[in-house]
């Protein structure tokens, strides 16, 4: 079918989309003033929040990198009749509303929760409303991301290389370490970077388990609702810059691959 005005239509859609997606960024830059923004960011309370966010996100990403890679490996190389169901189950946090995820974590790890109650009774350990809870929430949300990245990384390695490794006498572990990991490194690193950015930006689930603790997204919410535009602007800009850097890095890794 001939549609002569199609290129014009594409241009209009691209322009409208640019307008829509660009407007929040323009608005943020318009609202942000360098002097107010920096003084708000250099406040001790805000620095603690930034550090809390970065530390919990780093720890959560570290755990997610290991567990997600192992899950990705399992679902790529140990497929069986239940794999599809299991993989769907482990991917749920990707589409689950984060607030629901946070609520479920409360039910499981809260002081009266399924796992939280025996932990508290046996060791007087309380997870909820601590840094550990923040890590747990971020880990819950970003592990499926890492699993998917690892899965696609391993699928890109030609099957004959894995077979060749086994036929040459390498065990499954040696094949994983010497063949799969080196060949999947760029995709795995991109997955880790993306997972870290997602962990730093996690809001819904973290909010449910944070108690009085605050991360950058929670602080933005609190300050924006409280009318403290300086901190909200500064932290939002920080997240925008972090996200931009992450995407740039991931794209660069993609090109190298």
């Amino acid at each position: 079918m001939n549609f002569p005005s199609f290129p014009a239509l594409v241009t209009v859609v691209v322009l409208l989309a640019g307008l829509f997606f660009g407007s929040p960024f323009v608005a943020l830059l318009q609202s942000f003033t360098v002097a107010d923004g920096f003084s708000a960011l250099l406040n001790r309370q805000v620095l603690v929040v930034v550090l809390t966010s970065l530390i919990t996100a780093l720890v959560a990403t570290g755990f997610a990198a290991v567990v997600g890679t192992v899950l990705g490996y399992y679902f790529t190389f140990h497929k069986n009749s239940s794999s599809r169901w299991l993989k769907t189950f482990f991917s749920l946090p990707l589409v689950l509303p984060p607030s629901a995820a946070g609520y479920m974590l409360l039910l499981a790890f809260g002081r009266y929760g399924l796992i939280g109650a025996p932990l508290y009774q046996a060791f007087s350990v309380q997870i909820m409303f601590t840094m550990a809870a923040l890590v747990l929430a971020q880990f819950f949300i970003v592990t499926p991301l890492m699993m998917q990245a690892a899965s696609s990384a391993f699928q890109q390695v030609p099957a004959s290389l894995v077979k060749a490794s086994h036929s040459l006498g390498a065990s499954e572990y040696r094949t994983f370490v010497k063949v799969l990991l080196p060949l999947s490194k760029p995709v795995l690193v991109a997955g880790v970077i993306t997972a870290f950015a997602r962990a730093v930006g996690e809001f819904g689930a973290t909010m449910m388990v944070a108690g009085r603790l605050k991360t950058i997204p929670i602080m933005i919410y609190v300050k924006a609702m409280g009318g403290d535009a300086g901190v909200a602007d500064g932290l939002s800009l920080l997240l925008v810059l972090l996200s931009f850097t992450v995407l740039l890095l991931v794209n660069m890794l993609g090109e190298r691959r």
């Binding site: 004959s160 077979k163 060749a164 036929s167 040459l168 006498g169 390498a170 063949v179 080196p182």
Partner: peptide, 30 residues
Amino acid sequence: QERGIGFVFQDYALFPHMNARENILFGLNA
């Protein structure tokens, strides 16, 4: 790995991140 059987693949299946020497020694290292 315990069968004592060598396998040469249609697409060669050489490990792209290893040079020829490392490829050849892969099995002996294992």
